[in-house]
Design a binder for these strands. Sequence first.
DNA 1: CTGTTGATAGTCGAATTCGACTAGTAGAGT
DNA 2: ACTCTACTAGTCGAATTCGACTATCAACAG
Lengths: 193, 193
Amino acid sequence: MSGRALDNPLVVPILGLLLEGPKHPYEVWRELAGPGRDPTVAVNRASVYDLVKALAAENWIAVHGTARAGNRPTRTVYALTPAGHDELVRRLDEQLRTPRREFPQFLTAVGYVGALGPEAAVAALTERAAALRARIAEDEARLAAARRRVPELFVIEADYALHMVRSELVWVDDLIRRIRTGGLAWPESGDRP
Amino acid sequence: MSGRALDNPLVVPILGLLLEGPKHPYEVWRELAGPGRDPTVAVNRASVYDLVKALAAENWIAVHGTARAGNRPTRTVYALTPAGHDELVRRLDEQLRTPRREFPQFLTAVGYVGALGPEAAVAALTERAAALRARIAEDEARLAAARRRVPELFVIEADYALHMVRSELVWVDDLIRRIRTGGLAWPESGDRP
DNA sequence: CTGTTGATAGTCGAATTCGACTAGTAGAGT
DNA sequence: ACTCTACTAGTCGAATTCGACTATCAACAG
């Protein structure tokens, strides 16, 4: 494996989609990030084309054929190779096995909550809590609907996401409470030592 | 605000560090990612220099002076400007207020756990659970020690991180149990529909 | 006193990423 | 019949990111 492009976090999702069957890059992009998907993701289309090229160079995927509909640009369809399947399994195993410390926006921002002052902090956190409650309600509904259509294994990702959002809400609510009751002292200026 | 470089997630941490006082880029890098820090982060040093240049062009930070020790390269020290302070507060407020859907490695990998088969999945998840327990013990000790030295507000980030890791462990343990007891059916091939 | 390791400080150029562009098709609206 | 919008499919070049390099200084071993 050479080339830092293959460290891209999109590698697993792309190989994963090709597990379902051969696809052309535009189709891969559409399923990952196209219209209808959550707009907060917004995977760049050109990035998908770039990565597909890199995956083909590595022989993890290979040209499966070309299809042309009418006079539109020729679509190049790619399929997972056995080497690509192995690589996907290797990465999945590694990523499930090993926890990595990651830095979501909120974690970083929480570290500097002192800079806002207690009132502004409570205001922002209260709005977050409301947004989290709304998302939980929405996701619960979507998940319940999905469970009626497919086996539990295929909604496991949504189940995990929901569990973590619920847990975040518990913490946020408690932080608001701690600030409000003065249980969380607010040193001068809020600067970190 | 122009230039996509300013969307970089490092912007808040860098402005945040300059809140403590003027610093030169190497010092910023050292506090973010240098030796002694968690090696899983590994912020690239050149990226810090690039971003500092972009932040200065935007007038969010400004040259505060240059210091020279012996015959070594001159260090250019930067300080936060009032505009930079405003921008930091604006971003913190926005990031605390608005939950974003993010995609940690584990979330993506969980979605394709079916591709591993139940035995391999249990093996990988069991190792993850053990690693999570070890991390929790370590972080609890570190946090308890930190609490003896600084006010609670300054360890709030670690408190949040610990809460979320504990919550992940609960879910992982339960997933292992569900697979083991057969409560989670494993459709042929594990491919997603 | 010479060599080795490691921290400090910064720069350079090649690889990567992404906003914006081209261009054809389908359907809705007037 | 004709415009307007939206979707399909892919490419191009400029901005961004990062691995690898230079060079100085301090500490220590042999």
